[in-house]
Simulated scan of single mutants.
Amino acid sequence: MKTLLLWDIDGTLILSGGAGERALVLALEREFGILGTLEDIEVAGRTDPWIARRVLAKFAVPDTPENVSRYLDGYLRALPRELANPHAHTLPGVRELLGALALRKDIAQGLLTGNLRRGAEIKLSHHKLWGHFAFGAFGDDGENRDELGPHALRRACAHHSVEFTAERVFVIGDTPHDITCGKAFGARTIGVATGRYTVEQLRAFSPTAVFPTLADTAAVLAVIDGVPAGARST
């Protein structure tokens, strides 16, 4: 085993049909009696604690640890029901790619996400994808996404008893925050334009590779295996 893949969730593996944002709005009402929206708050690529603090600040609720915890607990309670909507789905090629990777004895897979661990489990279990990931780094580990990579790397090494070198680690995500997070600990990065950013917008952050979707399993595996672009089959 020599290669480690660390996956983002929202916009990369799945789309939740707005379930996460609706759950945050519901938690705001149920926990603090506030009717509001998440307008003007960046959500894509951010950690749940980062988002929670900005939402509370927007509505003049003190962002104490107790209030942040209360708000996020309310969000987790609201999330499962909101996921049961017809627009929540796994993104193109994800199941096929994860299945192909699961057969590779030289590749390990984990998560690197801004979701709380429990939120990640709820979302991926809803789509029957949770079983692909035995470890990861989550929003519970820190508010700053760029600090999450070392947590994921440490857990991967402990889980597999393998010292993964940074140059054989790939962070896969749909936002510039995923790319900068990977670069922060020396990992390679793969952007996928299935979220809110286009191929051109992601390419501006100089990832190792960018794909419009993950539907081309062979092309994604070629990047992971280090096959030069000119030598890849089409």
Rank of each mutant, 00 (worst) to 15 (best):
M1E: 09
M1P: 13
M1C: 12
T3E: 08
W7Y: 07
L13V: 02
L15C: 13
A19F: 06
R22C: 10
L26T: 13
E29K: 15
E31I: 09
F32T: 07
L35Q: 15
D40T: 11
E42F: 00
V43L: 05
A44W: 01
G45I: 00
T47P: 05
P49L: 03
I51P: 00
A52K: 06
R53L: 13
A57L: 12
A60P: 04
V61D: 08
V68H: 11
S69M: 12
S69K: 15
R70K: 15
D73S: 15
G74Q: 02
Y75G: 01
L83G: 04
N85P: 12
H89R: 15
T90F: 08
G93K: 09
A100I: 09
T113W: 00
L116E: 11
L116W: 03
I122R: 02
I122V: 12
S125G: 15
H127C: 05
K128N: 14
G131M: 07
F133A: 04
A134K: 14
F138R: 03
F138G: 13
G139P: 03
D140T: 10
R145I: 07
R145C: 08
E147S: 13
G149K: 03
P150Y: 02
R154L: 13
C157K: 05
A166N: 08
A166T: 13
V169K: 01
D178A: 01
D178P: 04
T180P: 10
G182Q: 02
K183G: 10
T189Y: 00
I190K: 07
G191R: 07
Y197L: 10
T198S: 15
Q201R: 13
L202E: 03
A204G: 09
A204P: 04
P207V: 13
P207F: 10
V210R: 08
F211P: 11
F211T: 08
P212I: 10
P212Q: 15
L214N: 01
V220S: 06
V220G: 05
D225F: 02
G230K: 11
G230R: 11
